[in-house]
Design a protein around this nucleic acid. Structure first.
Lengths: 362, 362
DNA sequence: TTGAAAGCGCTAACAT
DNA sequence: ATGTTAGCGCTTTCAA
């Protein structure tokens, strides 16, 4: 720990200049500029001495750190743990590794000031930034872009702001879900939307998608088959246990509807659907015997509940990996080619139904 | 992005040397060495120009990066997602922030070569390393220690190897669980252990703890009240869905025991307990009506299952934070004081019962 | 093919 | 109180 081995040490031992060591160690000029004998000796001594390039030093002169920042903005998700964002992070990690980049954790919990991202760029601590699950309405993103920072969002659901983004097709969520249910023979399908004061974009898009696809398919959806703020009577202020309230109320609503209700329901997220399950059972509504129920997110615990919950899954790991691929491409393409306001790349990822036991034929 | 502002730029603009800028910016010598007027001007110009210290440069000269590595070794947990480790990570994040350290993600998924940790130290990329949920039997940890690297483990369950570690009292898990059940009047308590070929240390300790505490309390535990490999008949090779097999088999065993079985069971982890729930219901065993059941880990989804699962929780966030506190203390205490084989610090964290609805009075 | 030298941007003695 | 200087360890022209 005390005496770290430097290039000079290696050079002295070999009896050459440190420039030669540098050339060899970096495999510069296609390994063609330094004599084979010398190369061998340098490599040998370097290994013997346990030489490792000093990171700070190299970054200083190269003006590159081969490090990517990762930032998860605070979100109103308030879901069950952090599994969602963390799954994206796994994809990010795998791809970074593949490209030989390191990851600097700028903010995981969402309670870190986004300005920190700007700082890390200004300090030349990172070459690029991955934004996980950003929702937009973030002026600091504009600031980043304006400064020409390399940023790519994984699972972005905000407005077009010139940001490269991997986006999940939240409207298609409802499409594939409804198609799944229709495929099981259901013609009467209801939707459980968010009852929040300011629902996140994901849930809004899913609800819009639901109304759209049912209309296209000619399925009638009376107002009382869409459970949201309207039916709840009051919008809910942000709080940790909102899904509990939403789920219980929705389930109660279904129990009350009885025979007049749909034969299948899609909840805007797993959590709400999962909470409904025991309440439905308690109310004498069998799932999937009397109604089919499905959620969205394909959370890990879907197989833990009874019955295991059919859900719509996201290619989260993929979105993370592809975001990094794109970011690295940008970084290695060299300094900002396009100075003006560019329009961001968008890659859309499709949802997939993961059928389990909570949905069945009518 | 092109022209980054350096100290020289600030100095030129102010009309002083860059040494003055450095002193001011770093608040060196207790802000007492530079004149107040000069100080103001420097600060003003620095702000105006948007000056930020170059990280590589500073690290190079300071020989400190104010960065902590985070590494999660691969583990046979194969549980439900990564919520467990990630929760520790949140604690690590919070504490790092508090101390003004950044976090470098060396390995999250457990499929990153541990040697990478050594490399990061050798490249002087990190000042210290946090090991999350390490199980020991890791020769590379010895290597790290031998080189005098600063390492602290959060939730360590391996043998004493001179590593500073935050450890969870896995034996006490069973103690508090049994006490909880006894408090509800249960005198006949069974245990569901791991059926794996090589069970992880956590589960082994929990089982040992169970046998010990029941003995101490004078509770009789006939062999068929401890479900493990013996009763299953075959040890299970590592696989993703082991908990499924364990849970189903255990539940089946309980159904078969009928009246001859205990009135309460403790499963070595939530996942197994959660899987048992529907099987028990299917077998006509009411929880908590006929038997009480509890798990360990207090996973997020415990409240999702029916009935919500009573469990034993860990102070995971705390363990993460305290690990960082200790690591930072070590780092800032200066270079390795103790050269010889030191004995690592151990801070033991107690478990807590988180009562929900799956346990009730006899 | 190899070496000398000039920085990268900052810090910390040491001078003034 | 402020400036000068000598590096930190590496990369990269440019000479030899």
């Amino acid at each position: 720990m005390t005496g770290h081995v430097t290039m000079k040490d290696v050079a002295r031992r070999v009896g050459c200049s440190s420039a030669v060591v540098s050339t060899v160690v970096n495999g510069a000029r296609g390994n063609t500029v330094v004599g084979a004998a010398m190369r061998e000796r340098v490599l040998g001594v370097a290994a013997e001495l346990g030489y490792r390039t000093n990171f700070a030093s190299r970054s200083l002169v190269r003006r590159r750190t081969r490090t990517l920042g990762v930032y998860i903005p605070s979100s109103p998700w308030a879901g069950l743990g952090y599994a969602y964002d963390d799954t994206i992070l796994r994809g990010v990690e795998a791809a970074s590794r593949k490209h030989g980049y390191d990851l600097l954790l700028i903010g995981l919990s969402g309670n870190q000031d986004p300005k920190t991202c700007l700082d890390k760029f200004a300090e030349r601590r990172i070459d690029g930034l991955i934004l996980i699950h950003a929702e937009g309405e973030t002026p600091w993103v504009g600031e980043l872009l304006a400064r020409g920072c390399n940023v790519v969002a994984a699972d972005y659901s905000g407005p077009e702001v010139g940001l490269d983004a991997m986006v999940f097709d939240n409207r298609a969520v409802s499409r594939v879900a409804v198609e799944h249910l229709a495929g099981l023979g259901h013609r009467q399908i209801g939707f459980i939307g968010s009852c929040r004061l300011s629902p996140n974009r994901d849930s809004v898009l899913r609800q819009q998608g639901f109304l759209q696809v049912t209309a296209e398919m000619g399925l009638e959806v009376p107002p009382e088959w869409v459970f949201d703020q309207r039916l709840l009577g009051r919008p809910l202020a942000p709080d940790a246990d909102l899904c509990q309230i939403e789920g219980r109320a929705a389930a109660q609503h279904i129990v009350t509807l009885g025979q007049r209700g749909p034969t299948a329901w899609l909840a805007y997220c797993d959590l709400v659907a999962g909470i409904m399950l025991p309440v439905l059972r308690g109310g004498g509504v069998a799932v999937p015997g009397q109604i089919s129920l499905m959620g969205v997110d394909d959370s890990d615990w879907c197989r833990m509940v009874d019955p295991p919950l059919t859900s719509v899954g996201h290619p989260l790991v993929d979105m993370g990996s592809r975001a990094v691929d794109q970011l690295v491409a940008r970084i290695e393409a060299g300094p900002t080619e396009t100075a003006g306001p560019r329009s961001g790349l968008r890659i859309v990822f499709p949802p997939t139904v993961v059928a389990k036991a909570s949905t069945a034929s009518v």
